[in-house]
Simulated assay, not measured.
Amino acid sequence: MDKQPHRFAGPPGQEDMPYLLTPGPLTTSRGVKAAMLADWGSRDVEFRRVVSEIRKGLLGLAGCNDSYECVIMQGSGTFAIEAALGAFCPKAVTKTLVVVNGAYGDRAAAILSHLGRPMVKIDKGDSAAPSADEVAAALDADPAISHVWIVHCETTSGIVNPIEEIARAVKARGKTCMVDAMSSFGAIALDMGAGIDVMVSSSNKCIEGVPGFSYALAKRDMLQASRGMSHSVVLDLHEQWRGLETNGQFRFTPPTHALVAFHQAMKEHAAEGGVPARGARYRRNAQILIKGMRDMGFSTLLPDNQAGPIIQTFLTPRDRNFHFETFYEELRRRGFAIYPGKLTKRPSFRIGTIGKVDEAVMNGVLKAIKEVLTNMMVTDLAPLEG
């Protein structure tokens, strides 16, 4: 019988499952897990209070003034993305500029195309950041563009785009700025008041909740003007907002357990020190991981000035003994679940540095990687080209 590898101890409440070193779902605290042990009525007074506090808390985290509203939408982050695109992007005459540098920018463009909404793209490939000057030039060249959509942290590569500079360029030209902050919100500072009209994110990212819902923060006047714009009954952001405002209830059954877990996660986020402290922990995780991987001989896709603290992309070694599926399975047996690459040009894999993980976990996965590489007889870690 094969000897089982030593397994790095999982977090409390998840001892028999691996740490999720992914961009979400991610490893959560015992408190967040425990919050899901009770059952809640979706129309109960206490549950409606929880929902109200979540909505107010999210607006506060984003630096919103009283001209913004928070609309929670059942479903994954892409549900809120499609709801926001369907609510706010023009159907005719003017168009939306989608700034693309990875799979999630491409997904927004695909949604708009499917909806038949006029759209143009700036395509930076899968590992280069757009500049404010490029966005400004595109707006100046095409006066018909009225809306801009951009991803804050594109987890295809882990790159963090210069949102503040781009938002300023967009607002200086009187356009609407919409941001997909799915993987960044809660750990990388984002000030909606600096020129962002719409922001979407989800429950299972940097605030460290579990999957089940997403949300859009948007200017109230935009929500009011979006009546009748949606292509969908379920994803109608205006009607969802009206329902929450009227009686604090969802139009359709909400993910009660995910919401109360997120409520607990928000308390823990505040207790840790909010966005600055959460971001600092993730940055420490990233620094330890990147240094350890480079010391072994791995190459990173991104330079340090572009790689954010959310997920790190490493180029696949050229050693013929390296097979990602074997590498993945052996790491999982040792208590760590990583992510395959999602790049279209360079073979790679990704390791997330967010969730309820710390320096000990990063050092643990580095130790496990060394062990797995030895067992696989991988010695040449120079990157595979192609």
Rank of each mutant, 00 (worst) to 15 (best):
A271S: 14
E272H: 11
N375L: 08
H257D: 09
M192L: 15
N65K: 06
F47G: 03
K219F: 00
E385G: 09
V120I: 12
R242G: 12
F322G: 11
G248M: 02
K121V: 14
I311H: 01
F88D: 11
E329M: 06
D66E: 14
N161A: 05
D295E: 15
L373F: 03
S201D: 04
P5Y: 09
H323K: 12
S232N: 14
H323E: 12
K95W: 00
E272F: 03
D180Y: 01
R227N: 12
F8V: 00
V200Y: 02
Y19W: 13
R251K: 09
Q240T: 15
A128Q: 14
K91N: 06
V100W: 00
D44N: 14
F47N: 12
G31F: 06
I351G: 05
Q264L: 11
A35H: 08
Q4T: 13
P162C: 06
M376V: 03
S131N: 02
R117V: 12
T379F: 12
A137S: 14
G279D: 13
G125L: 13
A169F: 11
A136K: 13
L244D: 00
F8D: 05
V93L: 10
M266R: 05
A277S: 06
A169T: 08
Q306R: 12
I196V: 15
A35W: 04
M362E: 09
D236T: 09
S202G: 02
P18G: 01
M178Q: 13
D319Q: 11
A271G: 10
A136P: 09
A138T: 03
V151F: 02
F262Q: 02
